[in-house]
Structures are given as structure tokens and as C-alpha cells.
């Protein structure tokens, strides 16, 4: 075990896969000598040279499409789109082309393409550099979508993503890059589509993604002091989604809270909630609650930004609300569907 940062973990996965497979190349803005806007690719240009680590012009559709063309013709590219917000510029190549070519061609070809990007609020980046757009990508058949929440998962999942023969969008979070954590020495890839249970508990299941995982862990500590034992699940990959692990947990706890940073409306939490509703309705003791961002753009002012971001206290509140439903201060609690918080 070694303790490294999330940034170093992504870098390590890239380095290990580039050493293992000479067809793996990096293509993106400033990924070369500069080391990437978030310094994730630092040192890779020096090790692998300009033919494996290519600085692209500032052209997101061109980057995604060029990487795709290379993926169709013998390479295994990892393209970097600096912010997930900029994926909107490249969506034709990601959604209409990369995601569809294997299917439209009747299975003639595999598409070993990874698009690395990063998302999320928390640095006063305002509304065009702070979105969480994973649900858009999950909605497109043909794409795999991964959101690692710590260094070990970042490294192991990225290695699997690079070895995958379908197009993958790998979504890092800008606030996690400095997070430290242990990574195993063996460097084994983590299989895609397998959730992990980070904390076991019998009272309420909390499914959290990306930065919300650590917040949920904090909420669980608080709730444990109050006698509520929370089970925390990090799905790690949204497509494929390990709904079975979530389902088994809900069958045990009877309660489910879903926490993600993306906008609540049409967010991925709605997908998880519906799946659980379909599969585990009879096991639910209370409505499912979501903790997410309200449907407003990400504001610039730190005071506004932190006011709309879901935090540990809101996760704890949501858990209390559904677990103590009908028994809050000795009166029937009015559940406000979809708010993810008390009003």
C-alpha cells in the first residue's frame, strides 16, 4: 500500500497502461510538457515522448473525433476534455459517432476510446466550468460512464477503462485531485460495473457518487452517534450500474437516500430511484430521498455556490427524515417529495 493523491493515481494508471500497451496514446489540450490543466499528465510527455502524449489544438470536437478515428484504426487513445462543460462542444463525436459506430456497423469494429474529463463545483468556477453532466452521457446507449471517488478507485477504474473495447467517459472531480488515499501495490484494474460498500449499516442505504461519497461518510459518523446505522454504496460506474448491490442493501435497510452533485432534475439519482422502486418497492419503508443540487446554474460567489451544493448535513437530514418518518418529535412528518431537504 502506498498513499498517493487522486491526481497521482490517475497519472499512475495512465503511466502503467502506456507502459503495458504501446497503442495507448494521450491526446488533449496542454497534456504534453505542460502536464495538463490539472497537472494530471505531468511527466508522461517526458517518459513517452511527443508521439504518445500529443498536445491538441483547442478544438474539443476535433479532439474527440480524432481520438475516435485513431481508436477505429489500431490505437487505444485516451482523450482529455479539460472540463466536462466542454464536452457539450464535442457531443456529436461522443454521442452520435463513438457511442453508435459499433452498433451501426453491425458489430464490425470495437471502439477502444477513453474520454477523460473532470466535472463539479466548489472552486468558484461559475456556470460554464462547474457542471456535473454525467446523466447526459448515461442517457446515450453505447457509452460507459465512470465516476471515481478516491485514489484507489481512480487508478483501478481508469486501467479497466483503457482496456475496455467500448467507448468510456471517465469523469474525475476537480476537488478530488488533492485527496490522498492508499492504493494497492499490485495495481490490478477494478472491474467495471461492480459497486463497493464503503460502510455497512442496517438502517438506511446511501448511494453517493464522486465528492458526495466522502460527505456521506461524514454524515454516517454523525448519524451513528444518533443511533442510525447507514450503509454507504459507491456505484463507481454509472454505466454499467451495479443495481444488484444497491437492491440487496435496500432490501436490508428499507430506506434509500441518493446523493450526487449534479442537478436533481433528471439527474442520475432519478434513475437509481426508479430502478429501486421497480425492484424493491415492497422492501421500502419510506419514500426514496435525493440530495442533489437545485436546478440553478452554478453561481460564482463562494457564498452562493456553497449554499446550493449538497453537503453532509443535508445527507444526514435526508436520512433522518426518511428513517424517522412518522416519528419526528412525536408527530407525523410531512415528506416533501424530491426536495432532498426540509423546507
Amino acid at each position: 500500500m502506498a498513499e498517493i493523491t487522486y491526481r497521482q493515481a490517475v497519472n499512475l494508471a495512465l503511466r502503467e497502461e502506456m507502459r503495458r500497451d504501446p497503442t495507448v496514446i494521450l491526446f488533449g489540450e496542454d497534456v504534453g510538457r505542460y502536464g495538463g490543466a490539472f497537472k494530471v499528465t505531468e511527466g508522461l510527455f517526458e517518459e513517452f515522448g511527443p508521439e504518445r502524449v500529443l498536445d491538441a489544438p483547442l478544438a474539443e470536437a476535433g479532439i474527440a473525433g480524432t481520438a475516435l478515428g485513431a481508436a477505429l484504426t489500431g490505437m487505444r487513445p485516451v482523450a482529455e476534455i479539460m472540463y466536462i462543460d466542454f464536452c457539450t462542444i464535442a457531443l456529436d463525436q461522443i454521442v452520435n459517432q463513438a457511442a453508435k459506430i459499433r452498433y451501426m456497423s453491425g458489430g464490425q469494429v470495437s471502439v477502444p476510446l477513453v474520454i477523460r474529463t473532470q466535472s463539479g463545483s466548489g472552486r468558484s468556477s461559475a456556470a460554464q466550468h462547474a457542471q456535473s453532466l454525467e446523466a447526459w452521457l448515461c442517457h446515450a446507449p453505447g457509452l460507459l460512464v465512470i465516476m471515481p471517488s478516491d485514489p484507489a478507485s481512480a487508478r483501478g477504474l481508469l486501467k479497466s477503462a483503457i482496456r475496455e473495447n467500448n467507448p468510456v467517459v471517465f469523469i474525475e472531480h476537480k476537488l478530488l485531485y488533492n485527496m490522498k488515499g492508499d492504493v494497492p501495490d499490485d495495481g490490478e484494474p477494478i472491474p467495471l460495473g461492480k459497486a463497493r460498500i464503503l460502510r455497512e449499516g442496517n438502517d438506511c442505504t446511501v448511494v453517493a457518487t464522486s465528492t458526495e461519497v466522502a460527505k456521506a461518510m461524514g454524515a454516517a459518523d454523525t448519524l451513528a452517534d444518533e443511533g442510525i446505522e447507514v450503509e454507504i454504496i459507491d456505484p463507481m460506474t454509472l454505466v454499467p450500474l451495479d443495481i444488484d448491490t444497491i437492491f440487496s442493501s435496500v432490501r436490508k435497510t428499507g430506506h434509500l437516500v441518493i446523493a450526487h452533485e449534479a442537478c436533481e432534475r433528471a439527474g442520475f439519482g432519478g434513475e437509481i430511484a426508479t430502478r429501486v422502486g421497480e425492484l424493491a418497492f415492497d422492501y421500502l419503508d419510506a419514500p426514496i430521498a435525493r440530495v442533489a443540487t437545485p436546478p440553478v446554474p452554478s453561481p460564482f460567489a463562494p457564498i452562493l455556490e456553497s449554499a446550493i451544493l449538497p453537503n453532509a448535513a443535508q445527507i444526514a437530514d435526508a436520512v433522518r427524515r426518511i428513517c424517522l418518518r412518522g416519528n419526528v418529535n412525536g408527530r407525523i412528518h410531512t415528506y416533501q417529495a424530491g426536495t432532498g431537504r426540509d423546507h
Binding site: A67, L68, G69, T73, M75, N96, Q108
Partner: peptide
Amino acid sequence: FDFKLGVLGANGIVGGGIPIATGAGLSIKL
């Protein structure tokens, strides 16, 4: 599509194939 013949696809999106050909060119070069 006919990948055996190097046909990387006709394309329903106008202009959609242009970056793909460019990527094939990058792959050839590498």
C-alpha cells in the same frame, strides 16, 4: 461501413466523418 476495406463509415451527421478521417490519419502517422 466496411472496416476490412477501410470504409470508416458513411455518416448521418453532416461533417461528422471529418474528424474521424483525421484520426485515421493520426493513427497512420503514429
